[in-house]
Amino acid sequence: MRFEVRMARSREDVARCQYAIAEVYNRQYGVVFSEDHHDLEAKIEPWPHRYLMVLHDGDLASTVGLYLRNTYVERFGQVERAEFEHALGGEKTIEVYDVGRLREITKLIVKPEYRGQNLSRFTIGCGHSRYFCQTEADAPYLITFCGKRSIATRIYAPSGLHYRCVKPFPIYKVHELYRSPEDPMDSYLLVPEVDIPPRWYGLELPGEYEVAELLPMEPAS
């Protein structure tokens, strides 16, 4: 199947992504959303600032969001600067990247009627295109995410994305339907040119792509 991949630009596109995300998150986790405004520490589940759309014949099949600032990991992950720097590794990387400059990939959903064809891996890969995750950036940002370990091993790893586990994510009630002791949540970091393979980082957006062409080795999950 071929999919059109582009960033949501219009008000209507953003609303389509928000309603699709809200439907899945509410049904599965009982989560509701509110506007992200200034520094409200406890505004759980604020809306992402940007959305990537994966469309089939104009129909929204999947989407993923991006926080341009105030990332979930920073606000709720209780990660110290030194812990981020430790995850970055060598001094050379620390020199190039500033752990104060973070963006976060978040709220990946695949509409129920499009499941079973690797779209979650495809969409997360597309979300790491520089044309999306580095949009409106004068210098590259580090990319972060928080999620269950199974998200990292079953979606990130098979799509070819490398990730660095920073530390366990604190336990919040809002995640009680999401995480479990067998599948705990962590905060993760990706260093763009090191951890994101060129086929994703350089993926031109907007564009039209086959899932199989970008996920060649992976059997359908």
Binding site: Y19, A22, N26, V32, F33, S34, E35
Partner: peptide, 9 residues
């Protein structure tokens, strides 16, 4: 109802 889920406010 979805309108409230999308914007709790």
């Amino acid at each position: 109802a979805m309108d409230f889920v999308v914007q709790w406010n």
